[in-house]
């Protein structure tokens, strides 16, 4: 049986991928699975406080998602933490490149995490990459 621990690596900044990552993380978390999310590359800037960035869509589905009452990906990630005890870690390298600190990030994110620690945490889990 596959591990019930789910590690979600999010590097894309497009709406479809952020949405799918948020759906996997939130539903797994509220179903009692241990969920770790690692945010890096183009995904991280969306998680700065009061970010007004809008994720661009890749295709028709993203356009439709943006026009309908689909739960926002940031709301789903926050619910993954609040309702399901998921842990969401910002990548320390991406924070260094963006020149931001912990205080610049949404409050439901955990502490800055490097790859060494994340790889160690992910060793006995499934890894889903978006």
């Amino acid at each position: 049986m596959a591990s019930s621990k789910i590690c979600v690596v999010v590097v894309s900044g497009t709406l479809e991928r952020l949405q799918m990552a948020a759906m996997v993380a939130s539903v797994a978390a509220v179903s009692g699975q241990e969920v770790l999310v690692f945010l890096s590359m183009n995904a991280l800037p969306f998680f700065t406080r009061q970010s007004s960035l809008k994720a661009p869509h890749e295709g028709e589905m993203g356009r439709l998602i943006a026009s309908k009452k689909v739960p926002e990906f940031k709301t789903l990630f926050e619910q993954a933490v609040e309702l399901g005890d998921a842990k969401i870690y910002p990548c320390s390298m991406a924070m260094d490149v963006l020149a931001i600190g912990q205080g610049d990030l949404e409050g439901y994110l955990g502490e800055a995490t490097g790859l060494t620690k994340f790889l160690d945490d992910a060793r006995d889990g499934q890894v889903w990459t978006f």
Binding site: M23, S26, V27, V30, K68, K69, V70, P71, L76, Q79, L83
Partner: peptide
């Protein structure tokens, strides 16, 4: 009503908590 997956599930979970 009007929301898409997993919106209704999340609303149920919030309601279950209270």
């Amino acid at each position: 009503r009007g929301s898409f997956c997993p919106g209704p599930l999340m609303e149920l979970i919030v309601a279950l908590k209270s």
